[in-house]
Design a protein around this nucleic acid. Sequence first.
DNA 1: AATCAAGACGTTATGCTATAACAGGGAAGG
DNA 2: CCTTCCCTGTTATAGCATAACGTCTTGATT
Lengths: 159, 159
Amino acid sequence: MNHIRTISATPCEHDHSGKSVSEQVNAARKICEQQDERFTPLRAHIYELIVRADGPIKAYDLLEQLRPDRGSPKPPTVYRALDFFARLGLVHRVEALNAYIACDHTHPGHVAEFFICERCDEVKETHAHSHENCAPNGFVISSSVIEHYGLCETCALTA
Amino acid sequence: MNHIRTISATPCEHDHSGKSVSEQVNAARKICEQQDERFTPLRAHIYELIVRADGPIKAYDLLEQLRPDRGSPKPPTVYRALDFFARLGLVHRVEALNAYIACDHTHPGHVAEFFICERCDEVKETHAHSHENCAPNGFVISSSVIEHYGLCETCALTA
DNA sequence: AATCAAGACGTTATGCTATAACAGGGAAGG
DNA sequence: CCTTCCCTGTTATAGCATAACGTCTTGATT
């Protein structure tokens, strides 16, 4: 019992520093076009807001930020865009926060893994190898959620 | 970059078969008492419903099931009990389902890992070693969410 | 015994998160 | 031109969760 199997994680530093907001938006546009999907002005606008947030952002906060420019958008406007981005892997939903975060990396065979500081709200994203090999016999994984909550180094030291 | 670290998972078969509902409830009672917490009749009632569900159950479904016996309970009644159980590790929240599941196992140094079949809704729980060692330098994990979605063996074969 | 503090529970009200369903418009292809 | 698909707007509602207040019980203290 309690047979140990091994999986591995790749802490590839995933902060998008080094990429400007517009570079990230353009990267997203390219990914869309490669898949024959439309990166409409509305989608570009919303994606830019997500990138600018530089961390998890909530659907209704996006809604607020859309307001001055686009009248009084309703929730479906935002949720449709979020669904679209999620489908293309351009955003991840952070389940335990009901929030969404931009991701311009794709790592085939890997899943996003988040480390979320509960004190300063900073989020680090890494990618773990799929947990397929620690699944119950025969289970086929189609998506995974891996989120860790705690304190980042800075906050842990000053706590 | 992309330095590989290793973590491990222990697929200890975690189904509670072999334990009757009342045995699980009593086990929970014992865990409460050991921690000088009160396993009140209401809590016992709610815990039994969670155990009987034999899988993730939603807060408002619990609320419904409480009804005939306890008048017209309101949401806080259920959420307070769920918070209590979660604090003691007697239930886990399945984030991506907004649902709750009984757990009478405690594995110090391990975190619960769920494999959820999207076709038959069956859930297998295993326990992974903490991901502490794949965290960014200095990050201190206080809780983790690991959930996998896909098809169980049976459903994968008949899909 | 009287008092006090903590926590369990009931209740009202509200806030936050998300989607169903229908209507109009615009782009791409026949 | 016209049809089809999908993008967007809009209304309405469903689903999930908590704040805040009051009462009662329990157990400890005086």
